[in-house]
Amino acid sequence: MAQNVFDRRRTNGPEESTPFIYEEDISNPVRPQETCRKGRKPADIRPIFLQPGLINQAAGSAYIEMDRTKIACAIYGPRQSKNVAFHEKGRLNVEVKFAPYSCLTRRAPMRDAEDRSVAMALHQALLASVRLESFPKATIDIFITVIETDGMEGCVAAGSIAASTALAHAGIEVLGLVMSCSAAAMGSEVWLDPTDEESRLSNGTLVLSCMPALTTVTSVWQTGRMAPNQALSCMVASQNRCDDIHTIVAQALLLDNSKSNQENL
């Protein structure tokens, strides 16, 4: 039973409520092992739909959809850092919020540890790309709202692509666009962009964030049990896929820019 904390700031439901369970899941809890990937080849990622400039109130914004992962990102800044001591390099503040309806079991609207771990991963991925020295004493706020999620790795990957697009849309100076790709080690194969189910069945997963323009890696986050050479092959596969994602993002940004130029004329 989920204990609902009474929050005077929101409309509250009953004290306790449980997510519903299916009869069939209790009687057949064991699921067969996936030997062959359904619907996609191991090196295929799901199609990406990317729309910069969805939120006109923000300095820069982007909305990304990768099949069942839907994330909106808004960037405010550089704006003044309040209540913080002087810092000669700018700061990057990443805040992630999962909508209550984004996961199969409803999440409480309060912020919890999972929000912060995704925020930390995104911060690590984007930190090296932004030219922080160009805005001292200021902060760039990156707000991410996850509307629907299909696995934590997919969330981090899509989030960093959206955030990078939004940074470019906002006109903030970056050394390169950051692209991310997640990979799962299934036996001896490497499956790119695993869904939640696939990553649960795998031995381990890896998310690689890189800047294809500079061929450098900004962040690696691996969990699970992998042999070192398997981890390396996951990284190489992810990096190759990031090059393709980079083309898609660059095209989306160019299209959006030419559209806004046309509107201004």
Binding site: G13, S17, T18, P19, F20, P100, Y101, S102, R106, I147
Partner: peptide, 8 residues
């Protein structure tokens, strides 16, 4: 988004 749960 609408999520459904069961309660007393």
């Amino acid at each position: 988004g609408v999520k459904a749960e069961i309660a007393e």
